[in-house]
Simulated scan of single mutants.
Amino acid sequence: MVIDAPSHRSGRPRAVAGVGVLALRSVGVVLLVASAVLGAQAAWSRFGVCFGGDAPPVAGLPGGDPQGSCVLMQDHAYDFIAPDHPWVPIAGATAREGMSLVLLGLGVALVALSLTGRRHVRLLSVLAGAGFAAAWIGMGVPELRSGLAGEPVAVDAWNLASVGADLALLATAALAVLAGVRGGPDRRPVVVFWAAATLAHPVPEYFFTVILWNSHDASPLTGFFRSALVAAAAVAAAVTMVPPGRGRLPRRRGS
Rank of each mutant, 00 (worst) to 15 (best):
N214L: 06
P220I: 02
S100Q: 03
G147E: 01
V33K: 09
G11P: 00
A154F: 06
R14W: 01
H8C: 10
T116Q: 07
A228C: 14
A176L: 06
R25S: 12
A43G: 10
A23P: 01
S69L: 03
G245I: 02
W213T: 14
V27C: 06
H76Q: 07
A135S: 15
V153A: 08
L106K: 05
G98Q: 03
R226E: 10
L249M: 13
W136L: 13
R119C: 00
H76D: 07
L123T: 15
L72G: 02
F224C: 05
P142Y: 00
P86R: 04
G52N: 06
I3Q: 13
L167P: 04
A133Y: 03
N214E: 13
A17L: 12
L249I: 13
L212K: 10
A42G: 12
L38T: 10
C50H: 08
G64N: 09
C50D: 05
Q67N: 05
I137D: 03
V153P: 13
A234R: 12
V16G: 00
P62N: 08
V30D: 00
G11W: 09
P89C: 06
G39V: 04
A174F: 04
N159H: 11
L101Q: 11
L175E: 03
V235A: 15
G180Y: 06
G131D: 03
L32W: 03
I90S: 08
W136N: 09
R248G: 05
T222F: 10
F80Y: 07
L38I: 10
V29L: 08
E143F: 00
M1Q: 11
S69E: 04
P189C: 10
C70S: 02
L144P: 03
V242M: 09
G107A: 05
V191M: 14
L221D: 02
A112G: 13
A171D: 06
A231K: 08
P244W: 00
V30N: 05
D166H: 08
A15H: 07
